[in-house]
Design a protein around this nucleic acid. Structure first.
Length: 779
DNA sequence: CAGTGAGCGAGCTTCCGCTTGACTT
């Protein structure tokens, strides 16, 4: 058919390139890897030099036959996958699978998708780099060995269907260890003193000058004594120091930094960011979104310059080339940037617009000049004491890149923003408005968010841009970690206020420890982590990936034989697998908490068949056993005897009502009141332990009222059939199943017969869907 | 939708990195 076939990894890229090349070229995409180790077998022949057993994945069969057809009918095949380890392997797999003969196969690489770069690449073809391919095979096989030998140990020793791997197990470890740091953390209180002075701004309007005492007091008494001593003191400005400072823009986005900034500035989850970026990439609006490079092409740098010149002027422009410092970076692509830098905005959904604007700003800012600041520190002394108050100010002398973009930080601390200071002079006496000493507490370490976990993994060189989002979802799917919901707790703190020479003491309360959506380990996550740490500390070592990456680099350089590298690893690793399988005990996270004072029976907690539970009684002692599930938020590791005993107080009876018993308990969906077979939820804010009969009846009435309002129509013919109002609008409920009503139909007009028709019609299509669902739901 | 906490025990589960689909609520 055509003379030349070019194969790239991504279809969006194929489309663009095809435009640059003439009619002589057909450009197709491999959609990433076309084959892999067989999924259901071990996939590595351990007896024969770790020979990999490759299979074309089932969803790639059709594609491969199409590529085969195209390559057979071409005079020349150009393998143009990415220039990194994985890209080289993709090229090699293509050559092998399509049985390309050497004479009509060329390997090319280009770093930017421009006509000139591609034409230049075609002029400089090379052969497939087998050393680099072998480095990839070693990486792939090592990951398979680790994952497929460790996971079965967990099935046997902890629970079926669990998983372990070089990347996911370290991600879980980070979260488990952080949580334990948090549990061990004891906040210390101290007193921070702030003085507010009455001064005048440049326009002679009265304003406040805020200054903080350098010294912090450890005790209430000291703080109080200090304020007391300030009653009749004079405040004088002793010193004003101005220092120039500058701030430089951050490099353009990589996958990791984009995920972090989109989370901080736009509140997107890691996977959301990637989905939106994918859309932008496919629409040709941005460059490739899975990259670890901060490099911009010459083309982009030039366009950024033009854009900055025309938008804000030459003074704001400064060319910068950034160096990638990330461990193990492969830099097959550019940084993430807009394809066309002269478009600050695009059309699309709000999310797409926002993410694009973020990328545009970050890219442009990275080619802009430093911001020049002037930082001022004012030292305020007192007539009776050598303690000093300090006030900070900051003035932007030249905004530079700040005109366009300011990076956010993860600091949740409400750090005082330095601002513009009023005109002040040395030796000026200050008029104190009030002085406040408030009790503060040291902060526990923060829990990881999705984005901060990605940052940490990247810092450790663990995982790749294409795997950050999937890793986060894997460890949640395995139920090793989950998103937190901590309402926090109230604590009281002391505040002293000195005003008009009067010292007042107040008690205030604040909520602390609120955490929503942060990653926290589950019991199973902790048990699995501890097991792996006990038996495979080297795999869970934070430096394990970095160490093996060094070996992969040596293989890629031709300095090390890939089979030799695997042999060395396996010789150490496999015996540990065998020994652990034979000798280690089953793990359930069991802890014996003590004895129930009422019955004298032992109380213990562990992971049971249906999750974390508490057990009353000892099987060995022949006790009759009683069980209860742990509540959400309770951990095996931290639950106390008292809390465990409380769990046996449910279900409890509230007494009889209308001849039926009212039972309070906690189910899968939280606390409820049950009357006969009907359930009524108890709101989160109320305590099922103390709820009264009166309140329970109120809840029942409310629920019944709400149910009545939900009913749009009921039918005399059949009490099972109802038209109800739900979250997604009106629907038909019939024999505990729900059916959709087309939007064009007014639900009130539906007759009994019309409803049954909808149900029967739906039933047919649902049947075929369910079959599909079952097959995909295996994950 | 909301009990459960296996002395019968099949057959299955699982990794990391490349890439996009085709699904429903």
């Amino acid at each position: 058919m055509s003379k030349n076939l070019v194969i790239v990894e991504s279809p969006a890229k194929a489309k663009t390139i095809e435009k640059f090349l003439g009619k002589e070229y057909v450009v197709l995409s491999s959609f990433g890897h076309i084959r892999d180790l067989s999924e259901h077998a071990f996939g590595v022949d351990l007896e024969h030099g770790f020979k990999p057993i490759y299979e074309i994945s089932s969803d790639k069969k059709k594609l491969v036959s199409e590529l085969k057809k195209a390559s057979d009918s071409s005079d020349m095949v150009w393998l143009a996958s990415d220039e990194d380890r994985e890209g080289e392997a993709i090229a090699w797999h293509l050559a092998e699978t399509l049985k390309l003969n050497h004479e009509k196969t060329k390997r090319i690489v280009f770093h930017e998708i421009t006509k000139s770069a591609i034409l230049k690449a075609i002029e400089h073809p090379r052969d497939i780099d087998l050393d680099l391919v072998n480095a990839q095979q070693a990486r792939r096989i090592l990951d398979r060995i680790v994952g497929y030998e460790l996971s079965p140990i967990l099935w046997k020793k902890v629970k079926s269907s669990l998983s372990a791997g070089r990347v996911q197990s370290v991600a879980v470890r980070l979260i488990v260890e952080r949580e334990r740091e948090i549990q061990a953390f004891v906040p210390e209180s101290f007193f921070k003193v702030v003085a507010l002075f009455n001064v005048f701004d440049a326009q002679n309007n009265p304003v406040e000058l805020k200054a903080e005492l350098q010294h912090r007091f450890a005790s209430k008494e000291e703080a109080k004594a200090f304020l007391e001593s300030c009653k009749s003191t004079d405040f004088i400005i002793e010193n004003i120091v101005k220092k120039p400072a500058k701030r430089s823009p951050s490099p353009p986005f990589t996958t990791s930094t984009l995920q972090q900034e989109a989370a901080r500035k736009l509140g997107y989850s890691v996977s959301q960011t990637m989905m939106i970026a994918q859309k932008l990439y496919e629409a040709g609006k941005i460059t490739y979104m899975r990259t670890d490079s901060v490099n911009l092409s010459d083309f982009a740098i030039e366009r950024a310059k033009n854009e900055i010149f025309s938008l804000v002027g030459e003074r704001y422009w400064q060319m910068r080339r950034f160096q990638t410092k990330t461990k193990g970076a492969q830099e097959a692509h550019e940084a993430i940037r807009p394809t066309y830098l002269d478009q600050p905005e695009i059309s699309g959904t709000t999310q797409e617009k926002n993410l694009y604007a973020l990328i545009w700003k970050r890219t442009i800012a990275s080619q802009m000049s430093d911001a020049e600041l002037e930082k001022t520190t004012i030292t305020i002394g007192m007539s009776h004491s050598s303690e000093k108050f300090l006030a900070y100010g900051e003035v932007v002398k030249f905004d530079g890149f700040l005109k366009v973009y300011m990076e956010s930080t993860d600091d949740e601390d409400d750090q005082e923003k330095a601002t513009l200071l009023p005109p002040l002079k040395v030796k000026q006496q200050l008029d104190l408005n009030q002085m406040i000493a408030s009790e503060r507490f040291t902060q526990r370490p923060p829990r990881y968010s999705e984005a901060s976990l990605v940052r940490k993994l990247e810092e450790l060189g663990i995982g790749r841009p294409s795997t950050y989002a999937p890793t986060i979802s894997t460890i949640q799917k395995r139920n090793y970690v989950e998103k937190s919901h901590f309402e926090g707790e109230l604590r009281s703190f002391t505040v002293f206020v000195l005003k008009n020479n009067q010292l007042k003491e107040e008690q205030k309360t604040e909520r602390y420890g609120v955490d929503k959506g942060k990653l926290v380990p589950t019991d199973i996550g902790m048990v699995v982590n501890d097991f792996l740490m006990d038996y495979f500390p080297n795999i869970l070592d934070y430096h394990f990936t970095a160490t093996v990456e060094k070996e992969f680099d040596d293989i890629a350089e031709g300095q090390l034989d890939w089979q030799e590298a695997l042999r060395r690893f396996y010789a150490k690793f496999h015996p540990m697998v065998v020994e652990t399988m034979e000798k280690s005990e089953r793990r359930s996270g069991e802890r014996i908490l003590g004895v129930d004072p009422k019955t004298g029976k032992q109380i213990s907690v562990r992971i049971g068949r249906f999750g974390p539970m508490v057990q009353l009684g000892n099987k060995e002692a022949g006790d009759e056993l009683q069980y209860a599930s742990l509540k959400k938020g309770q951990l095996l590791e931290t639950i106390t005897l008292e809390e465990a005993l409380d769990l046996f107080k449910l279900p409890r009876s509230l007494g009889e009502w209308n001849g039926k018993e009212l039972i309070v308990a906690i189910g899968r969906f939280g606390p409820y009141v049950r009357c006969d077979k009907t359930f009524y939820s108890i709101p989160k804010t109320e305590d099922p332990m103390t709820i009264t009969m009166e309140r329970a009846l109120e809840l029942i009435r409310e629920k019944e009222e709400a149910d009545k309002n939900r009913q749009i129509k009921v039918f005399e013919q059949d009490p099972d059939l109802k038209i109800l109002n739900g979250r997604f609008g009106p629907y038909i409920s019939y024999q505990k199943k729900n059916y959709r009503i087309a939007k064009s139909i007014d639900p009130k007009t539906l007759t009994y017969e019309a409803c049954m028709e909808i149900i029967n019609h739906d039933e047919k299509s649902v049947n075929s869907k369910n079959k599909k669902k079952k097959s995909t739901k295996k994950e």
